[in-house]
């Protein structure tokens, strides 16, 4: 019988990190589901890029996939903080319920909901049920000017466009590499991880990239404008790609 595990907890508590430790094993079929954001989920794309043997399930195919799982399958359902814990979807199937919670959180809806609790990051849980907003946008095909991207990530995470508790994204750079960026308020620094996917040096990348911001009072239009102002024009991208294509590996190492 397939093993179904639903994981929930506050934004930034470490749900995806907890799940990722199990996805490294390739012995049995594994599925990852992250409903709530349609096809715009950064986590869904990130898991797909990082663990290509894991079947990431788009929201639209969820019901069909769950109805036809192999016996040995394990399904990890990441149930975002913004989704209803009392959803009929969770009640219909025998999910093992895991709550990834900050160490200081003594009482919450997750405590009553979960079968077991895993200690996660020391993030602040939403106060009095006042949930933060989520803003996300795909950035497919957009390639960023690296110093502009650095500035915008610093500004967004620093609160220039609203009080941000969480930011994650996948961004394309002109040298063909793509990076996963992860920021959690209260944790030191920002994690940048290069994705182990082929370099894209021919035109605009035809693969998922995007950003997801969680916080209060988000100035969505201003964030979107800053993102746009930081992306490269066709001409600039072509110039970069021509340059990187002409580099031999030894020279390239100097630019990385």
């Amino acid at each position: 019988m397939p093993h179904l595990i639903a994981i929930s907890g506050p934004s930034g508590s470490g749900k995806t990190t907890w799940i990722s430790q199990f996805l490294k094993h390739q012995s049995t079929p594994q599925y990852y589901v992250c409903p709530g954001l349609g096809d715009l989920s950064v986590d869904l794309a990130h898991i797909g890029y990082r663990f290509p043997w894991v079947q990431v399930v788009p929201e639209a195919q969820l019901t069909a996939i769950l109805a036809d799982l192999p016996e040995q399958a394990t399904v990890y359902l990441e149930w975002g903080f913004h989704l209803d814990l009392g959803s009929p979807f969770l009640a219909e199937l025998p999910w093992e319920r895991v709550a990834v919670l900050p160490p200081d959180l003594a009482e919450s809806d997750w405590h009553g909901w979960s079968d077991r609790i895993v200690t996660g990051n020391p993030v602040a849980a939403p106060a009095n049920g006042y949930l933060p907003e989520i803003w996300c946008t795909p950035l497919n095909g957009q390639v960023f000017d690296p110093p502009s991207l650095e500035a915008l990530l610093l500004e967004v995470s620093g609160g220039a466009y609203g009080q941000v508790g969480r930011m994650k994204g996948i961004f394309e750079l002109p040298d063909g590499r793509a990076f996963h960026v992860d920021f959690v308020e209260g944790l030191p620094g920002m994690a940048y991880t290069e994705l182990a996917i082929p370099r894209w040096l021919e035109g605009r990348p035809d693969r998922f990239s995007g950003i997801e911001v969680v916080g209060y009072g988000l100035e969505r239009e201003a964030i979107a404008q800053t993102l746009l102002d930081s992306t490269l024009s066709d001409a600039a991208l072509a110039q970069y790609q021509q340059h990187y294509q002409s580099l031999d590996p030894a020279e390239e190492a100097l630019f990385v």
Partner: peptide
């Protein structure tokens, strides 16, 4: 300019 963003601003 240090970046495209700085130039636009």
């Amino acid at each position: 300019y240090p970046s495209q963003l700085a130039e636009k601003r």
